[in-house]
Amino acid sequence: MFETAINSNAATFGGSMVGKDPKWDRFDADGPKRNPATTNVKTERAVTSVDPDQTSKSMSDLLVRVGDQDQDAFRAVFDYFAPRLKAFLMGQGTSPQMAEEVVQETMVKIWRKADQYDPARAAASTWIFTIARNMRIDHLRKSNRPEPDMNDPAFIPDPEPLATEAISQAQDSAQLYAAMAELSEDQRAVLKLAYFEEKAHPEIADALGIPLGTVKSRIRLALKNIRSRIGDSE
């Protein structure tokens, strides 16, 4: 359904920009630097100038405060994430209006569920990504996303070591960020397409003009490189 979306955004987000993608400046060392003054996002001031680790930490703290129904914290989370979620959703071929609807639903969900957020288990960005993804599936596809239920008696719980070494903790976010920044252009391009354009792998192959087997091996390699950088044995 997304391939039918023809709007200016879909055009700028199409296959041609893969590689030197101005939307990906944070990872692209030689790309244009994001200038907070031109982003038109008022309260970005709080977070733009700090390093990713600090951002991640402060976002986790903010999200915990949202769990206590702290409106200022909610506003700060909104200011940081709403424009990014909108960009993320538009990258998936969603129209700006529709993207804002999903952003709205995601933010409402964040407000209502933030008391369940556990900073020891996931970075704020990870938690928010999963909510936005689920809201998008709800909203655009009107279908269910089956998920395991950890309270189900048939659910096999994590063995202890696994639970404590989960890499998705906020303090590991900088490490993950660094690992992703080190990926080759090729590898980052396939990852972006996989996450941002909801593309099946054959469509990624088409968009990049490379064989399907190459897409698969690049994805595998990208994930392997990330793993080795974050010190996780394969």
């Binding site: 944070r26 990872f27 996002v41 951002t55 909108k86 996931a122 990870t126 998705s168 992703m180 990330i226």
Partner: peptide, 28 residues
Amino acid sequence: ALCPMCRRTVSELEAVGGELVSAVAPVP
């Protein structure tokens, strides 16, 4: 539901998704 190992991989992949969202250039 039956495989903690794959759940860990899923957590990692979700963290990658979170990083990608953080890294995108914002749209007002």
